[in-house]
């Protein structure tokens, strides 16, 4: 006994216009071209200005541009595939009593090769574009580790004043479940509020005191993981004044969802006066003497001058003084 169905022979092609097979490729191409063109034009001219994360900083603007370019690349692909399936469903559905088989086409080398070359080209384009957009804007706002290979141009000095064109360094310190921001160029003063000057290259140094956090300034298009004991550098330049959200983007424990704050981008002059006043207040409290300008770890046994009685700034912070127990592992 042998088994296995041999399908009934293929029925003659479905009667198209005048009994001839319609020109499927042409129809598909025309529909695809019109739809893709429309989608791409709408994306580029209508949707692009509204794409996230907005245009508050150089990195945000860059990402908005990238989204738009990727969308313009992606829409023709999506439309081609969906249109094809839609067309197939309509054109080649079997009738209710149709028991016949389709034509025995096992493959088509030309079609396959065209497909493979096209997808490869799209992929290589996405790669080249992505790499360019990553390297040229110095990491595009992403965390680049302790020794960034793609630096933001500009000089760094030990102090910062408006109009000098220096980079502003901001150390971002994550801990469960709050952010502290330290300004090494202002005597290492720290604050629970993030103020940034516009038009200034900014160098974030992101670190953590306990578990992994991730610093996400959404409207600025900046994201860098905060790893304990690791300095993760990210660059941006803010070019619009206003408020932006700062959220923790890596699950860090029960209050992860509540670990957010808001930052302010202000004019350089206003920033300088804010920073100077905070610095003066902290110098008076004795905090600046105790804190290092810049440090990756805040071990109370190392910074012996600091106990739990540190003056707290704005009620909550003081990265070095705000340990939740028992974050320091017992040395065996």
């Amino acid at each position: 006994m042998t088994s296995g169905t041999t399908g009934t022979p293929a029925a003659p092609p479905a009667p198209g216009a005048g009994g001839r097979e319609p020109r499927h490729w042409l129809r598909l191409f025309v529909m695809w071209f019109v739809l893709s063109l429309a989608a791409d034009l709408i994306t580029w001219y209508v949707w692009r200005p509204h794409l996230p994360p907005g245009d508050m900083s150089t990195s945000a603007t860059g990402q908005q541009f990238d989204f738009a370019v990727l969308a313009v690349t992606g829409f023709p692909v999506v439309i081609a595939v969906l249109l094809y399936f839609a067309y197939a469903i309509v054109a080649w559905r079997a009738g209710p009593d149709d028991e016949g088989d389709g034509p025995p086409i096992h493959g088509h080398t030309k079609v396959s090769v065209t497909w493979i070359i096209t997808t490869s080209l799209i992929v290589l384009w996405a790669f080249a574009f992505g790499t360019f957009e990553l390297i040229v804007p110095a990491g595009a706002g992403s965390g680049e580790g302790p020794n960034p290979v793609w630096n933001l141009a500009g000089k760094t000095s030990s102090t910062w004043a408006p109009g000098q064109g220096d980079k502003l360094q901001v150390q971002v310190i994550g801990q469960q479940w709050a952010w502290t921001f330290r300004y090494p160029q202002f005597g290492g003063m720290e604050s629970s509020k993030l103020y940034l000057p516009t038009g200034t290259p900014i160098e974030f140094h992101v670190t953590s005191l306990d578990v992994i956090h991730s610093f996400w300034a959404y409207q600025l298009g900046v994201k860098a993981d905060a790893n304990p004991g690791v300095d993760d550098v990210a660059y941006t330049t803010v070019h619009q004044k206003g408020t932006f959200e700062v959220r923790c983007n890596e699950l860090c424990g029960i209050w992860h969802g509540a670990m957010y704050t808001y930052g302010n981008a202000v004019s350089p002059a206003r920033f300088a006066s804010w920073a100077t006043s905070v610095r003066g207040k902290e110098a008076k409290d004795g905090l600046l003497r105790a804190l290092p300008k810049y440090a990756l770890t805040y071990d109370p046994t190392v910074i012996s001058a600091i106990g739990k009685n540190l003056p707290k700034i704005d009620g909550i912070t003081g990265a070095a003084g705000y340990y939740y127990p028992p974050s320091d592992p017992v040395t065996p």
């Binding site: 996230p52 990195s59 990402q63 990727l70 692909v77 595939v81 996405a126 992505g130």
Partner: peptide
Amino acid sequence: YFNFLIGGISGVFLSDVPADVTEHG
């Protein structure tokens, strides 16, 4: 095919490092 296409195309957005800055996590 429909769902995986959307999943796959959004994956290309995620693979692009600059765009991933906003999308990651």
